[in-house]
Design a protein around this nucleic acid. Sequence first.
DNA 1: ACGTCGACCTGTGGGC
DNA 2: TGCCCACAGGTCGACG
Length: 341
Amino acid sequence: MPELPEVEVVRRGLARWVSGRTVAEVDVAHPRAVRRHLAGAEDFAARLKGATLGEAHRRGKYLWLPLGSVRRTLAGPAASGTAPRGVAGAPSGNPPECAPAPCDAPHQTPRPIRPRSAGQTLGGEAALLAHLGMSGQLLVQPHDAPAETHLRIRIRFDDELGTELRFVDQRTFGGLSVHESTPQDGVPVPLSHIALDPLDAAFDEAAFHTALRRRRTTVKRALLDQSLISGVGNIYADEALWRTRLHYERPTATLTRPVTAELLTHIREVMGDALAAGGTSFDSLYVNVNGESGYFDRSLDAYGREGEPCARCGTPIRRRPWMNRSSYYCPRCQRPPRASS
DNA sequence: ACGTCGACCTGTGGGC
DNA sequence: TGCCCACAGGTCGACG
């Protein structure tokens, strides 16, 4: 159940082990894994083949890597067979560089216009987009590693590193696809309605508060609404609400500016804590490009702790069915709003 | 336009 | 022992 911190760990893994490598072969083992690529699996593979994967970006729970191309994208007179290898991509035989920023540098929304490096193909910018859904993993594995039970997509590279990228997903809620990016901000088109996430330096706190006040909904629904704020899932929503002492059914229209600010602070803190726990071992090769490291030993105060004493007041934590899932809260610290049941 | 809710998936675990 | 169902939950499209 990757939320933002887990996805960020994956992004760092991709930046370290995948960025800069050129795709040689793509094998789609399960069509549902590319269902967001409307042109189908064959087109998905064709779009990737020959492309060099660029910097790893993240917004909320989405990941993407811009596609450059060492060779010409269209078959020209000199395109087949004679295109030089390793001109603009990673030098073959060497570990891919993590340039230009350190892999674990705080992510930023990409600059509006990135300078093209020599050899990159002109034309519409495209990107490989990934969402892990509920159970998705991106693994960097040796070629000869046995296929995982739920291996959906395999991407091989044209270098000599001996590893490939695998998308493994038990429940198939996640998937990969290739999309054009908007020229304005370089973000893949399907993400245009996805709000910035709270760890993004450009996140607009005042605008978020204004939007909350305008909505006629409750605070937890708003936290899970990707068009208002992205990256928050059921787990961190409950945790942040617990830290802020807010009941999940509190109408957003009643939130004051200081409360919104405190809520955001707690969202960032709980995500930061999880990232610190999950990011500690991501750089061990092959294993931890999967978003799971650190996940299970995260310390949670509310989520999943039904019946256990609240860490603040000792009152047993409650679980309530909510929107076909669950909400965990302390009935004493997080009083329900007066007017609602 | 905005808010709500069910469908999509599959493995696990508890209850009978 | 075996079967059934609740549950996990992010996203999108349908509906009001």
